[in-house]
Write a protein that binds this DNA or RNA. Structure first.
Lengths: 150, 150
DNA sequence: AATTTATCAGACAAATTAGTCTGATTAAAA
DNA sequence: TTTTAATCAGACTAATTTGTCTGATAAATT
């Protein structure tokens, strides 16, 4: 698995918030719509709040919102806040100190692939995805299509 | 993490066997040289034996050897035998049924990246890496360099 | 001021992955 | 034929990730 579940949940939630484009979305709404455990999602979003990607508000009318313009937040930002950037920097075989000077047997081939992996997430902003979600009516929910309520 | 630890251990072990190029390498030698837990590695190599990538022999002069010409075994073969091929097929956001007809918001961008990921592992054989290990004296061990014995 | 609705904090449980251990089995060598 | 050296089988433990729960805190409404 490239991304942890916590990380994919974090991405789905920030995408939802980006597409809604309103003040403070309650986590309960996110967990209901995306079919993610409320308490688990709460913990994940607290991380994103602590990292400065989200702003939260307690009480009625509370919830979370993006801390910045969604055009300036990339998938990479969210991934790094939850999973760290090890997946984009570490040796795929786990050899300590693997690099150009002391490469593992596939370093030379893995390195460009790893770079593309990073570029893929760096070059996509939440706004671009939010636009596509709205335009193309893309779903974000983890629920299976034929179990979706209308 | 792209590959599980079990998977990286399996790759390192098969690479070691490929570079040694002799009949039946004992797992004890592999675990000592690669600094991997003997019992854990044993279980992993049993999987590879069950999957037909390795042949094992009990008793003195026993151990494991490659079941085929290392030129015909790819990293992808080993990865699939241990981790399965989900990492090469599933949605990076975990959305069930994500695909061309019902894409997730980054399907279009993730898809080629995922393809390169697979291609990277499909196009590298154990023999090619074994050759490089021998020629360039590349290390396989998980031990840190300054802790290595001579 | 009291109530309601939300996040925050942290303990706890379950599931998965990683790692350990003991004994059974098998094959070669003495 | 006995001993020895290896894998095989499976139970067990530890660590990490995932998920659940309860209460404290804060902000808006009544």
């Amino acid at each position: 698995m490239v991304l942890s579940k916590a990380c994919t949940y974090g991405i789905l939630a920030t995408l939802y918030v980006a597409k809604e484009n309103k003040e403070f979305v309650p986590i309960r709404e996110l967990s209901d719509e995306l079919h993610i455990s409320f308490h688990f999602l709460t913990k994940i979003l607290q991380q994103l709040t602590a990292q400065g990607l989200l702003i939260s508000l307690k009480g009625p009318k509370g919830g979370v919102k993006l801390a910045k313009d969604p055009a300036t937040i990339t998938y990479y930002d969210v991934i790094r806040a939850i999973d760290g950037d090890e997946v984009f920097t570490e040796c795929v075989l786990g050899l300590p100190g693997c690099g150009h000077e002391a490469p593992c047997p596939i370093h030379e081939f893995w390195s460009p692939t790893r770079d593309l992996l990073k570029t893929t997430f760096v070059s996509q902003s939440l706004e671009e995805s939010a636009y596509q979600i709205n335009e193309l009516k893309l779903r974000l929910s983890l629920g299976h299509w034929n179990l979706e309520e209308e």
